[in-house]
């Protein structure tokens, strides 16, 4: 049981960064950014490669910088070259496949055997015992969340938020929306890259296919969190992605641990969780409506039912 909790918390915090990136691109900027899958692998590949070269701490900012570059390419395609935003993400994502192979030395995976990672160094401090991975993941994610919250409260952050809300108004406030979209997508993809970088070091490997479906899972986490905590404020939104991500990993871990679902069935389970969680708000309002209608039907005088 403790293992389930630990695993769920550790993975939950690590992948919460992807959900946080989607919160910024999908919710704040109102852009469906599909760079995510490839960008996550890019972060992992860069992180693992730099760590293998003996720089586990440098690996983290390197992964973020690589992610930001990927975000810049997507932003450039859609703001300067007029590529529709979803297509721009897919184009970058496809290109990243080759870039990721290149980063890993033209192999489809890279691993760290006997190399120090930030997790090994942190657990060597000997303070947190078995919980050291969880604590470190939580620290990274909460720090990133705090910085994102601070950033969205600055003047630049406000202009990024307004870009997703009313682009005409941003122009009228002497801010170039091309610039704010670019900054926003760079920051979002830096967060995705960070997630990949942390996961890569925690699992001591990077795989070319490890990013498949990450964007859907991230969206699911975002929506689970919002279902639990509600929407509206930025602070709530950032906390919600962490809650949602941890909840998602709990569901996943329990399914895996109790062997309710065989390993071959995990993709289907993920799809079901994602589908249901995205559908949750609709199901919730539909249920509420049906209950209300049923309740009213009882109160109607005889002969008027069925109307």
């Amino acid at each position: 049981m403790e293992l389930i909790i630990r695993t769920a918390l550790e993975l939950g915090f690590q992948y919460a960064l992807v959900a946080m990136a989607l919160f910024l691109s999908f919710r704040v900027l109102d852009i469906a950014d599909l760079t995510t899958d490839g960008c996550f692998v890019l972060g992992a590949a860069v992180s693992v490669t730099v760590t293998a070269a003996g720089h586990p701490f440098l690996a983290i900012p390197a992964a973020m910088a690589a992610g930001a570059c990927a975000g810049f390419v997507t932003a450039f395609l859609q703001t300067r070259l007029g590529v529709p935003s979803i297509l721009a993400g897919i184009v970058t994502n496809t290109g990243l496949y080759t870039v990721n192979l290149m980063v890993m030395g033209w192999r489809s995976n890279a691993s760290l055997l006997g190399t120090d990672t930030i997790f090994i160094k942190f657990s060597a401090l000997g303070v947190f015992g078995e919980w050291s991975n969880v604590i470190l993941s939580a620290a990274v994610t909460i720090l990133a969340g705090t910085l994102l919250f601070w950033f969205l409260g600055t003047r630049l952050g406000l202009s990024i938020r307004a870009t997703g809300d009313n682009r005409d108004m941003v122009r009228a406030s002497s801010v170039n929306p091309t610039f704010t979209v670019t900054v926003g997508l760079c920051v979002a993809n830096a967060l995705t890259g960070l997630s990949g970088g942390v996961v890569g070091q925690a699992q001591r490997s990077a795989d070319i296919n490890s990013g498949t479906g990450i964007v859907v899972i991230g969206l699911a986490c975002l929506i689970i969190g919002e279902t639990v905590l509600g929407r509206r404020s930025i602070l709530k939104g950032i906390i919600a992605v962490m809650v949602g991500s941890i909840a998602y990993r709990f569901i996943y871990a329990i399914a895996l641990y109790t062997r309710v679902v065989p390993v071959e069935g995990l993709k289907l389970l993920t799809a079901a969780i994602v589908g249901l969680s995205i559908a949750a708000p609709t199901i919730k309002s539909w249920t509420a409506f049906q209950l209300r209608r049923a309740g009213r039907g009882r109160n109607l005088p005889a002969g008027k039912e069925g109307r």
């Binding site: 938020r161 108004m169 406030s173």
Partner: peptide
């Protein structure tokens, strides 16, 4: 509806205008 950002507060909207 064209001149203001609906999901941001009055204060934040004014702050944006003040960017000028």
């Amino acid at each position: 509806l064209k001149g203001t950002a609906p999901n941001m507060t009055i204060e934040e909207n004014l702050a944006l205008a003040f960017l000028r």
